[in-house]
Every structure is written in C-alpha cells, then in structure tokens.
Design a protein around this nucleic acid. Structure first.
Lengths: 290, 290
DNA sequence: CTGATTCGATAAGAATTACTGATCGAATGA
DNA sequence: TCATTCGATCAGTAATTCTTATCGAATCAG
C-alpha cells in the first residue's frame, strides 16, 4: 500500500482518459511495458483487478472506475500542493501545446520564453495546426493547451483572452506604387475557416472592391512571400509584416481595418493538472497587444 | 516531482506530528537515515528547504508547515480511496493499541480475531497499560487506539462505546462456605484510579459492610489468584471469573452490583489514518455485552 | 566542566525496484 | 489473408532505497 507513488495514480488517470496503455505510455513519456508494470503494481497492492480484458483493449472495472474518480482530485491536489510549495519552480513534465500560425507568430515566442525562465523543468511540445483540429485534439486529450485566433466557444473548452493584433492590407512595393486597388488585384487569404478570411471579405465589400481573384493558402508565411513577390494584396496581421513594412518591401494599400484578431489560450474545462492550469493562467496574463 | 511517493508525504506528516526524525522512523518501522533520505529527496525535488536546524532538532519552515497542512487531508483521502477500493483487504501497516487489563480480557481477543480475519495485512502492537498513561500516549501519538474501562471524556479524545460487563462479588469457595461477609473479610481491589474501585466502595456502603482491610493490586489476574487462595473478597468483572465460578473454585458472596463497567475504544479526535478509523469503527461495532 | 544522551548527517554495500528493448499471442479491420 | 494494434512477458541494466555503522553537534545532569 505504501509503495504506491503519485505517478501510479497519474498513470491510472491517463489510461482512463486515453483508453489504452500505449497512449498513456506515450503521454507519460515512457514505454508500454512500464505502464503495464505500474498497473500490475497497483493491482497487486490492492489485491483487486482494476482492468478487464475486452477484445484487444483493457477497460476499467467498476472498482477501477471508482478509484480513478476518487483519485483525480487527489492527484490534482498533490500536484498543486507540491508545486505551490516550490513556487512552480519544481514543475516538471511535458505539456503539449498546439497553436495556430498567427498566434504562433504573435505570442508564442514570449510565452515560451517566460515558461523557460520561470518553469525550467517543464518541456513544451509545440505543434502548429488548424483551429478545428486543435479543438478536437484538445478534447481528445492529445494536447493540453492551444493558442488560437478568433473567439471560440465550444462545450468542454475554457478560453482566456491573450490580446489582439491589428490587421493591415498590404501589397508589394511595386504593386502599391502602381496604385494598389485602382486596378483589379488578385487577393490572397487564409482559407475561410480563419477569422482573417471574414475580415478580408468585409473590408473588400466596405470599399466596394472586386478582386480579380481570391486565392487561399493555409500558411501565412507563404502568403507573405506570394504578396512580396507581387502576387497581389492580402490582409495580414500587422506584427507578422511589421519588419517588411519597415524595410519597405511591403506597403499598406488600404486603411487599416477596425476589426482585430483576438488571440485566446484554450484548455479543456475539465483540466486539473496544476502545471497546465498554471501555464493557462500565465498565458492569460500575457496581454499581448500588438 | 514525479518521483515523490505517498510515503514521502506520510513521512513528512509523521515528522510533523512526532517532532523528530527518529520518532517518525520508529513509527514508520524504518531507520532514521531512511527518514533523512526521504526528507532530502522531497527537498531536492521541490528545490526548497522544508526543515531548518534548531538546536539539535529539525523544525518545519513556513513552506514546510504549509505543505504538511495541505498534504494531511490529501494523504488521508488517498489512503481511504485505496482502502475502500480493496475493501480494506489491502490495508497494511502497524497499528499500536493499548488496552486496560479488564478491557483486554473482555473484548481484545474478539477484536484481534476479527482484525486478523478481515484485515490480514494489518499488524497490531498491543500493550497493556493504565488508563491515564494510555490517554497521554494517545495524545502524544505514541499509540493509535486504546481500549479502556469507564467513561472517559478528554479534549482531543474521541471514544466509542463497545459494551459493558457485569460485576460480581466473589470469594473462594472456602470463604463463601464460611459465611462470606458475616465475618469481617479483607477486600481486595484495583487501585482507586479504576472505576471498579468506586463500585467496590459503593456496594460496601450500600450493604453496610466494613471490611477488615482494603488491599489493592494493579493486576486483576493477580487479584483473582489472591481471592482464589482465600485471601478475601473482591468485586470483579463477571467474564473474567466466569470459568472459576462454573468450576466452583470461586463463589458469589453478595448480590451482583447494578453498576457495570463500560468499555470504550478511544482515538485522537484528529486521527485521519483510514486504517485506524476503520479499526475504531469496527471496535464500535463489537457490542461486547457480557 | 565532564560524561552521557539525543539529535540528524553521512558513507558503503546490499537489496530492491523500475525501466528499456525485443518479442509474443490475440483481436481487429481492410 | 495480411497488416495493425492491443497488452503480456522476459532479460538485462539502470536507478533507487534501505540498513548498518559511524560521526559531529547540542543538550542536560551531576
């Protein structure tokens, strides 16, 4: 009984969340045999079966489910107590973060830097992705936190506003010198799932502009290169093109839209890992306004 | 952080309760260097000092105190979750029990038998002692539970009634045949700290008997032998002399007193160890009435 | 002031425990 | 039927925890 450690409980919780030993092993940065061994240790200590074979999976028994349910707040409580004792300097582990490309360019560097300074034991695994997929992965516990653009409201998701960035209509210097929208230009944009796309459509309608075409590309960096090469105009986050505007490679060709892109950090509303909660809190304090 | 086990926290709790590493080591059935090592492990993991040298003792720092305070309910909850998961069959550890002699003779055997049957992993360490010393040891966490006679009410102590036993006035067969109290007999009794002594005095007054002398002995078994050898009369718990009454070696020489001896189980009111609480619960369910 | 006692720290070696990597059999699905 | 995916198992190794025996410091009684 005494030989059950906190990571045994954590193991149990992650198996329950992810469904398989393998997934839990991957989540906990270890191997499947290690997970099997931990489960065996708990079952031996308790003298009861926590899992039952069901096809090729293991599923929790009634007692196992009950134990998991009781252990969840206890585990969170232990982690929180230990972490607050050390002022979160002793926090360890890996937190998986997904980010939209714009959010990544706007606020990830500052966030990562702050985490590395204040929580040196925490490893971040960052993956750039699309908002929809991020939300799915978040709900499926494949990732722990997401940085994304535009207000999202989804059941099971909790968000905190980080800040917002202004938008600018840009074209290459050559295109701008040629008068910009006095001629019909190709417009490039992120696909329609992004709020940027909506802003683009709105301001075109506002100014009564009919673009020659509307191309889309799911990568903002590529978009910038297309525009920089004279490929047309685009509405882009101001911080991402600030450098190019200053160097003169790009130029603004319309008044800045009043609508901004709002960034949010998102976690599962059921999240109880104190490290994730702490990162979420810190993300909410970033207040990146650019 | 992940390498902190439950027993690390348990160690912390016992050091806080008992004041020294040595006492905690003894309480946890291990050695003092092991305790030192555990403390060092926690401090290294957290990166903070939990103890400060103070003379030749170690005392908790502010953070240490806070951690202990936060961990206490968590630890209790954890133990309880694991134990209820296994129906208390997985309970392990040592519980220290003190018992008065009469309680030991009356209800300890049944209790020990039940514990050995239902909680095979639990080791009991039983020591017979006097009520006053038992209460002191209980409050000082030297023991976990006490079985004692007579109602006790003490701050910090929680009791549960187990049952009560009747009392009988006995003398040896020879003394009884000689008429019992028609002659002035020596009366033997437990010293005055026991409720038995009070019952003895009351019934003597009730029957208007003046004993030749009142001897005391702090051991009931010895008392019985004294009486059995014709040394006089005594008021004794009925179950402890039942066999001798049936075999005829002793005989009753006065009507049975109406007052009975009430047995109680006692624990600290701050007790949070689920095993001790479970044993206390079971003790309260014994309902030994003899 | 001295000797006895009690506190915790420390080191060496033994014992135990946990992890990894490679395989295995069973169940599932294309 | 073949390819996947699941978890179990095993051997070797790495890491840990424990015990025993000692040490220095603080405390207390005489």
């Amino acid at each position: 009984m005494k030989r059950i450690a906190i990571y045994h409980l954590e193991t149990l919780l992650w198996i329950a969340r992810l469904g398989t030993f393998r997934a839990a092993a991957e989540r906990l940065n270890t191997t499947q045999p290690a997970i099997s061994a931990r489960v065996r240790e708990i079952e031996e200590q308790l003298g009861i079966a926590l899992f039952r074979r069901e096809g090729r999976n293991m599923v929790l028994t009634a007692r196992g489910r009950r134990l998991v349910k009781e252990c969840e707040p206890l585990w969170a409580g232990f982690e929180k107590a230990l972490l607050t004792a050390s002022g979160f300097e002793g926090a360890t582990g890996t937190v998986r973060i997904a980010s939209g490309e714009i959010a990544a360019a706007s606020c990830l560097p500052a966030f990562v830097h702050a985490v590395e300074r204040d929580l040196p034991g925490v490893t971040l695994e960052i993956e750039l992705d699309l908002t929809a997929r991020m939300l799915t992965q978040l709900l499926g516990a494949m990732i722990d936190m997401a940085f994304l653009a535009g207000p999202v409201a989804s059941p099971g998701i909790r968000t905190a506003e980080i800040g917002s960035v202004g938008l600018v209509w840009v074209a290459s210097r050559a295109t701008a010198r040629a008068g910009g929208f006095v001629q019909s230009l190709p417009v490039w944009s992120i696909p329609s799932y992004s709020p940027l796309h909506g802003v683009m459509m709105e301001t075109l309608a506002l100014h009564g502009i009919t673009p020659r075409s509307i191309g889309t590309c799911n990568n903002v960096r590529t978009l910038i290169e297309i525009i920089g090469g004279g490929g047309g105009a685009a509405v882009l986050p101001e911080p991402m093109v600030r450098g190019l505007l200053e160097s003169g490679e790009l130029a603004e060709i319309l008044p800045r839209p009043t609508r901004t892109i709002r960034f949010e950090a998102a976690i599962r509303s059921t999240e109880c890992d104190p490290v994730v909660l702490e990162l979420f809190r810190r993300a909410g304090e970033l207040r990146m306004d650019g």
